[in-house]
Design a protein around this nucleic acid. Structure first.
Lengths: 340, 340
DNA sequence: AGTAATTTTGAATCGAAAA
DNA sequence: TTTTTCGATTCAAAATTAC
């Protein structure tokens, strides 16, 4: 980080080692062994060593961050209090602590504590008086026209999104879900901004930044991780510029359409067709649509192209799939089931 | 706190000043003024002063806490990182960080941040190796037979629960909901335990502790708050004792397997089958099992035949009876009932 | 080939009593 | 104080195998 020019970065997303301090092995009730995070990079001699490490990288981060930039740091109860205190000590100003609530956390197999079902993110500006970016309207749109809260419900990264190594096993032990980074980046940056991730790992930050038309810088010392990340990001397509500019307001159903984009069920720039194939529209990153002549919510654009007073966009718009049209409501139901 | 005997308290619930550092007045969009927390007790000169205050009261708390007791501290992003770091520095061992998600938080009127919709609680034991109370089954029952997670959805305190002062205005600016304390106390204490709240305020901890049959100690320096709290607690009725006792499975008296043979519930030489019918073993007169290749306790042989690191023999081994497999745990329960 | 059942897995600080 | 034994304990979702 010290090789980068001072004040050159708009946003930092950092996922530092958590210093888990695991003791012995842990087995599930069915006797299978939990594949724990026991990598060398998560080992520190004691709290003091972790504090020094935190001080060093946060100081370096502060230097490269623009005065009006913001920093996000994610962690668990093992490390987040050390990080939070150090951020305050260095003069950062906490804007929010945001809770990532996991839909599918690992259970507590021994029944000795509450299921550890969340992680904490700290969002800070460089000082109390700096002017940070916050795309309030985009967040509100993404949350069914209600203010976005400080607790976010998002599944852990699994399935096809999880990067595999050459051996077919998980490529990185702590890969974060793209939906999480999507919301972070849409909330706190503008297209063209520079996003820095000093603990790049599997490159989730770079992949999402690229898709959303933000520049990215990733720092990583493990060559294996670098290779995986670069291959991954090479496959990502940047969404069209128009899809990335943010629009505001409007009514939407209980599952906001934007969530489908955020969760990767639909990509920014994806083309939707009306059920009768007469009209098409493209999906933008904030969950609005844009057609030849109109832009707005799925309902508004659906109504506008028909010249109708109203329209249920969930039934009107479809995804062309293998020659068949699948109503976007189908995806809403998938997500609704998932979020239960 | 220093007047209390050392090691005399089973649980501490602490709701210290948050050091909110509010700047000017805040108005809602309709121009009404938000009734902020601007009391003298929430004013500190700087972070250093807040840290010294935190160090002092946490040190005192540590002294009065039993070695196997636990402490809960609630806070927001303004202070929780200072508190969490200090807890760790003093040797406390974090068991969970629990998120209180508010169903009805105050909106962010300026639209500059995410709605601050949660507060954080830290639950710590006195050291890594201490044995704290956790009523796992009670929590699981309370959560529809799923493990209780670290994020709790509970409304803020309002309506008739909110204590009013003599002037009819709110009696205490940061009164916590009784539902929150209910879950904390049921989770981490037993009936008859002593609960200490060093920042008693409106006395929520005392009220809930009394109803749940726990003893309580409240420390408060504001005489107005003391008066309100005592009046409030006087109205509370302790629930019936039978409603408060919880019999956890792991606290039931132990029944050696040999007793089943001794009492004639199983005959020496009886053949047991594993629940999946893959293995068999014979019962010996001393209460050990013998299989084709292994001999030892029900647990040891169960583990050995599976090649597993451990096994609960009570659930693994069954008695074939009329074509059905009856777990030997059934006979243990019969004997347990008989022994009363 | 399609559906149902089974197995696998995820940032985890995950015992206590008796000998 | 240390070692051995007892025996309690999991949820959601994807991947794999069985039917």
């Amino acid at each position: 980080m010290n090789a980068l020019p001072a004040g050159s970065v708009d946003m930092i997303f950092a996922d530092p080692p958590y210093n888990l301090q695991l003791q012995g092995d842990l087995h599930r009730p069915n006797n299978s062994k939990v594949d724990a995070v026991d990598d060398a990079w998560d080992k520190f001699d004691d709290l003091g060593a972790y504090d020094r490490f935190t001080h060093e990288w946060l100081s370096a981060a502060r230097r490269v961050l623009k005065d009006d930039g913001t920093i996000w740091v994610i962690g668990s109860y093992h490390n987040i209090f050390r990080v939070g205190s150090k951020l305050q000590d260095l003069g950062f100003w906490v804007l929010n602590d945001v809770i990532w609530r996991k839909t599918n956390p690992m259970p507590n197999f021994r029944g000795r504590r509450f299921t550890n079902a969340h992680e904490t993110m700290l969002w800070c500006s460089k000082s109390k008086d700096s002017q940070n970016t916050f795309n309030y309207e985009a967040m509100k749109t993404l949350n069914d026209d209600l203010q976005m809260r400080s607790d976010w419900l998002i599944p852990i990264c699994s399935g096809s999104e999880r990067i595999k190594g050459d051996d077919g096993r998980k490529g990185h032990p702590t890969q974060k879900p793209e939906a999480l980074l999507h919301r972070v980046i849409v909330a706190a940056t503008k297209p063209g901004d520079v996003v820095l991730d000093p603990f790049f790992g599997s490159g989730t930050t770079g992949a999402v930044a690229k898709r959303l038309g933000r520049h990215w810088i990733g720092l990583e010392r493990d060559k294996g991780y670098i290779k995986l990340a670069l291959e991954r990001i090479a496959k990502v397509q940047k969404a069209e510029t128009e899809m990335l500019t943010i629009q505001a307001k409007r009514e939407e159903p209980r599952i906001p359409f934007g969530w489908l984009v955020e969760r990767g069920l639909l990509q920014p720039g994806a083309v939707l067709e009306s059920f009768n194939r007469r009209w098409t529209a493209k999906v933008r990153s904030d969950g609005t649509l844009i057609s030849a002549e109109h832009r707005g919510s799925i309902h508004q654009v659906g109504a506008a192209v028909q010249g109708a007073p109203a329209c249920n966009g969930w039934q009107f718009w479809c995804v062309p799939k293998d020659g068949v049209l699948v109503p976007i409501d189908h995806y809403r139901q998938l997500l609704r089931a998932e979020l239960h």
